[in-house]
Write a protein that binds this DNA or RNA. Sequence first.
DNA 1: AACATATACCTAAGTTACCAATGTATTTAA
DNA 2: TTAAATACATTGGTAACTTAGGTATATGTT
Lengths: 110, 110
Amino acid sequence: MNKQSLYKGCLEPIVLQLLGNHDRMYGYEITVKVKELTKGALQITEGALYPLLHRLEGEGVLTAEMEHVGNRMRKYYRLTPVGQATRKNALNELNDFIATLQLFNKPAIS
Amino acid sequence: MNKQSLYKGCLEPIVLQLLGNHDRMYGYEITVKVKELTKGALQITEGALYPLLHRLEGEGVLTAEMEHVGNRMRKYYRLTPVGQATRKNALNELNDFIATLQLFNKPAIS
DNA sequence: AACATATACCTAAGTTACCAATGTATTTAA
DNA sequence: TTAAATACATTGGTAACTTAGGTATATGTT
């Protein structure tokens, strides 16, 4: 597993990107998808994810729909129109961020 | 300027990389170099940098040498042998991190 | 039948790595 | 002469996490 401290601040753009590519997803699904996609390199905790989803919903970036599967509840989230724009912006920032980090990616002299 | 929250946790590997490529540097020089290298995209604050340098020195990753330039003091830092290894490791983590982030770099369906 | 694991939601308390603000002092440019 | 740049440093606050815990259903596993 990668050093987790590097991912601080990246959770929001990652979630937005997933929802930009998946129409709708529920919390637990997101944690599983991220773990699967990154082959375990990134494991997002529920203690980080759920408060984030609630905040984004409160900000009008996401909407939520409850659904029952058997006796168990799922809360599906999807991007609002505002969220679509937020996602695009976040993606640009993420790409700039990656490009900036690449500037320091040198083998070193010695 | 990029969204700063993304860079949380990246300061240490960035500083280690700079010192891996520059033999020795002093604090203020690092702030200027980062700003210059990233064309202003990343501006590290002194409130973040100096405590980090002190910690890395305390951990044996860096050594410091004081020097006078006129009446003004400079504190030069360089990597110790331990620091060289720490840098290499941090670079690997940074590359893994970037590769993982790239997994989410998609244009989105809509 | 009992138990662990997976699925599915959630919150509260603590940690960490930063930012913003401030302080001191010298040097240089307007 | 006064602002900006150079150069060090610390303190207080905060955002985004982690760790730990709680509730409940569903599905293997012995």
